[in-house]
């Protein structure tokens, strides 16, 4: 069995795609590129495509990792080279490779880096103050809705591995727990830190990480 692993950027208007729409977009692009997809059996055959840590609507990404099950291996170099004929303009493939039977992306991901560009008339001091105050805490509890509609208390402080303001770029860099064990979304942290309207922010994922031999390495 062959799997195609892709690393891609989601830019511009594509930030507005939902996870399902991103999924469909990729499927159709691969069909246009005549990539031999492997299909499930049954009346509604569908391909096997999985994204690492799907982003909420509104986020940009320089680091989308995808697995696609193939009927047979392909030359990934050709796909990357000819991508503009098959993919929407604002979806950019960076790398691709063929894997034999990779572990589930969702299980592998442990951390993400983001930059949040502010575009807001607030003073750098106010932002730095907010960040310093948050980092100085031992714990920071929030109420989180569970799938069953109840609320749980979660301490998000240990989920934040790095948090810093870059005044020149007017952006906040954050490194957060991601994945099935511990997960914190950048917008949730932003709401805890400040009172900024979310539509003003430009959130971009910079990297995804997994652990290998106890060390943090890039997911792709």
């Amino acid at each position: 069995m062959a799997y195609l692993q892709l690393l891609a950027r989601k830019t511009g208007n594509l930030r507005f795609l939902s996870h399902l729409e991103t999924h469909k977009m990729l499927e159709r692009s691969l069909r246009r590129a005549r990539v031999p997809l492997a299909f499930s059996h049954g009346f509604n055959p569908h391909p096997n495509i999985s994204f690492a840590a799907p982003l909420p609507v509104g986020s940009l990404s320089d680091y989308e990792v995808v697995h696609v099950e193939l009927a047979e291996a392909i030359d990934t170099g050709g796909l990357i080279r000819d991508q503009r004929r098959f993919f929407p303009e604002e979806f950019i493939l960076l790398k691709g490779k063929i894997l034999e039977k990779p572990p589930s992306l969702m299980k592998e991901v442990v951390r993400s880096d983001y930059t949040v560009t502010l575009n807001l008339p607030v003073s750098p001091r106010e932002i730095e103050e907010g960040i310093r105050e948050f980092l100085s805490r031992e714990t920071h509890l929030i109420r989180k809705r569970t799938k069953k509609g109840r609320y749980n208390e979660v301490d998000i402080r240990p989920q934040v591995k790095d948090l810093a303001y870059d005044q020149q770029a007017d952006s906040i860099f954050m490194s957060l727990d991601t994945g099935s064990v511990s997960n914190l979304k950048p917008l949730v942290l932003m709401e805890e830190l400040f009172d900024f309207p979310p539509e003003k922010l430009d959130i971009k994922r910079e990297k995804l990480y997994k652990t290998k031999d106890g060390e943090l390495v890039e997911l792709y």
Binding site: L14, V57, G58, E199
Partner: peptide, 23 residues
């Protein structure tokens, strides 16, 4: 986000207004 992007983001289904589809 830019002013138009803001309202597209705030709408119920942003992909109605974003454009940029293939073809």
């Amino acid at each position: 986000m830019k002013p138009l992007e803001e309202i597209i983001y705030l709408s119920e289904k942003p992909s109605r207004y974003m454009g940029g589809e293939f073809n």
